[in-house]
Design a binder for these strands. Structure first.
Lengths: 152, 152
DNA sequence: CGCAGATATAACATATATGTACTATTCATT
DNA sequence: AATGAATAGTACATATATGTTATATCTGCG
């Protein structure tokens, strides 16, 4: 199984309404992108969640505690406990103790985890390249600007 | 618990790369919108998935079979089995047999389900109105056009 | 008609998320 | 220093998704 934002849901909510279905359009576009990322990563033996976790662990020099990781992945700690369980079962990370705080657990990426992550990056770059081919730099800028207007 | 596209995932994948992070921007914007929809629906006692299912069942005059519903919600049938289990446990829909095909099961929305759906529509309209306030009609059009360029 | 293959649902295993409750530790305050 | 509050991780219950397998039913072909 391989799905986050557990895509698969319709998002057929609100095709019409005060916003003329724009909200749905954003949700559906995201769902399509998720599916593409997911497909790309399946070929590498990763899910989006697993890749994200590895990516955070690798892009931060300090070995992160599970709580830090939860913060960076914007999810609750009980989720990270399970995600690290699965990554550890896959042999991609290893739990280790934290010298500063005996309550804390640090996740360390194994060499196999590093390889898998590198393959994931390549897969994702391909999806991004396809994305960039459909939308020129100017349009990408406009898109980002419009989306950021929705924040807050 | 109330989350679909099981938001909560970071989507911190690929902030840079060939597309300059545009893909991430779309995923993150969608996640924010999901959370808003989710919050709005929690107040009504629905999840996005449950609302979507009710919405499909109500907006189609014919009582749908579970397989039809799966098709309309773009998900696998085993998911619908469980979703209808929960909706039935909530008293919002009722399973019934299908005269044409004794294998099939039809989901019928109960009066309470209709009420709940109506409340959900109101909640979603509010989110859409807030959305429309942040982005004028012209910008919404531009956004939809840019997103639709990503299809296919 | 009878049977082979397709289809509809459900059952079960699993992945990913949330939230609550429990345990071990740390920290702050007296 | 002792203790009560806060924090880190885990365990457990549950929601939402997928995929696989089993069962009942339907369909079309000989």
């Amino acid at each position: 199984m391989n799905d986050t934002c557990q895509p698969g849901l319709s998002r057929d909510v609100a095709k019409s309404g005060p916003d003329a279905g724009t909200l749905s359009a954003v949700l559906e576009a995201a769902e399509r992108l998720q599916r593409r990322l997911d497909s790309a990563l399946v070929g590498v033996g990763l899910s989006i969640s697993k890749f994200d976790a590895l990516d955070q662990l690798i892009s931060t020099d300090e070995p992160l505690t599970l709580g830090d990781l939860a913060g960076r992945l914007h999810c609750v700690r009980s989720n990270i406990t399970q995600l690290i369980d699965r990554l550890e079962a896959d042999g991609l990370v290893k739990r280790g103790s934290c010298s500063d705080d005996r309550r804390a657990v640090r996740a360390k990426v194994t060499p196999i985890g590093e390889e898998r992550h590198a393959a994931g990056v390549t897969a994702i770059r391909a999806v991004q390249a396809a994305f960039a081919e459909k939308l020129g730099a100017g349009d990408r800028d406009r898109l980002v600007r419009l989306l950021s207007a929705l924040e807050g």
